[in-house]
C-alpha cells in the first residue's frame, strides 16, 4: 500500500512549470472539454491532452494500475449511461433522426449510430480529462501544494490546511500500518473475506477506530505549536516563492485560449452538438 503522493514526474518539463499552471490548465481544459461534443474535436482534445501528459514523463509501469482502473471505470460509466438512457441521446442537433441498428435483448434499449457516437465521444472526453489530470497527481511537488493554492487565491488558512493535509498523510499512513500490525499480533485475520458486508464492516472497526482516534488525540500538540507561533494573527509568508516564467505564461495563455475558443465555438458553430461519422450511418 503506497499512500504517499508520488512525485513521478520529477525533473520533467511539466514538473519544472509553476504548479499553478498545472492546476489552471486542468480547470481551463475541463471547462473547455465539457462544452465540446463533436467527436472530431474531442479526439483532437485527447491528442492535446496526451501530448501534455507525455511532457510529464510519468513512467507508465508506475501508473498502469491507475490507467487500468480509470479506463475500466469510464467504460462502465459510459456503457451504463447508454443502457439507462434507454435510447435517449443528448446533444443531437434539432430535428436529427436516429439510425437504429437494433435493440438490446431483454432491456429493449435501442442501439443507434447516434447512441454509439455519444458513448464514444463521452469516453474520449473522459480519457482526455484524465490524461490532463494525471500530471496534477504525479508532476507537482507535494510540498508545493499549500503555496500553490494560496497563490491561486485560496484564503491562506485553508491553503495552510491543504499543506498540512499533505504533511499528515505519511505519518497517518505509518500509524495505520502500526495499528494493522498490532491487530495482526493479537490474532486478527485481515485477509479474511467471509461474512456479509456488515460483518466485514464490523471487522474493520478495530483498525479504523484506533487510527482515527489516535490521529485526533495527537492534534492538540500541533494546535498548541501553531498557537505558540501566533498562527492566524497576521499574513503568512511561504518559504517557496512561485513565479511564472515566460514558458509558464505561454502554456497558461494556450489553455485560456482553448477555453475561450471552445466557449465561442459552442455558440457560433456546431461544436457543442454530436457529429455522427458517416461510416456509422447504415445505408
Amino acid at each position: 500500500m503506497n499512500f504517499a503522493p508520488r512525485y513521478l514526474g520529477r525533473g520533467s518539463w511539466l514538473a519544472r512549470r509553476d504548479p499553478r499552471v498545472l492546476v489552471l490548465a486542468v480547470v481551463f481544459f475541463v471547462f473547455a472539454a465539457i462544452q465540446v461534443w463533436d467527436i472530431r474535436l474531442v479526439a483532437l482534445l485527447l491528442v492535446l491532452a496526451l501530448a501534455y501528459y507525455r511532457s510529464a514523463r510519468i513512467p507508465f509501469r508506475e501508473v498502469r494500475r491507475q490507467w487500468f482502473i480509470a479506463i475500466l471505470f469510464v467504460s462502465l460509466l459510459v456503457f451504463g449511461n447508454g443502457i439507462f438512457a434507454s435510447g435517449r441521446v443528448q446533444r443531437l442537433p434539432d430535428g436529427a433522426v436516429q439510425h437504429i441498428y437494433g435493440y438490446l435483448p431483454l432491456l429493449g434499449t435501442p442501439i443507434s449510430a447516434e447512441s454509439v457516437t455519444f458513448a464514444l465521444t463521452q469516453f474520449l472526453r473522459f480519457m482526455a480529462m484524465i490524461a490532463i489530470g494525471f500530471p496534477l497527481a504525479f508532476a507537482i511537488d507535494p510540498a508545493a501544494f499549500g503555496v500553490t493554492f494560496a497563490r491561486l487565491g485560496v484564503p491562506y488558512r485553508f491553503a495552510y490546511a491543504i499543506d498540512l493535509t499533505w504533511r499528515f498523510i505519511p505519518s497517518f499512513a505509518a500509524d495505520f500500518r502500526t495499528t494493522m500490525d498490532a491487530q495482526r499480533v493479537r490474532g486478527m485475520d485481515l485477509g479474511e473475506r467471509v461474512g456479509g458486508p456488515l460483518a466485514r464492516l464490523r471487522r474493520q472497526v478495530p483498525i479504523l477506530v484506533p487510527t482515527i482516534v489516535n490521529a485526533i488525540a495527537g492534534a492538540e500538540d500541533t494546535i498548541d505549536a501553531m498557537d505558540l507561533r501566533a498562527f492566524g494573527t497576521g499574513r503568512r509568508t511561504w518559504i517557496r516563492e512561485l513565479r511564472l516564467d515566460p514558458t509558464d505564461r505561454v502554456v497558461l495563455l494556450a489553455f485560456v485560449a482553448l477555453f475561450v475558443v471552445a466557449t465561442v465555438a459552442g455558440f457560433t458553430t456546431s461544436s457543442s452538438f454530436l457529429w455522427i461519422p458517416p461510416f456509422l450511418i447504415p445505408s
Partner: peptide, 13 residues
Amino acid sequence: SRVIVYSAIGAAL
C-alpha cells in the same frame, strides 16, 4: 488553528 488542524487531519485520514 483548531479548525485548520482538525480539517487537515480529517482530509488526510
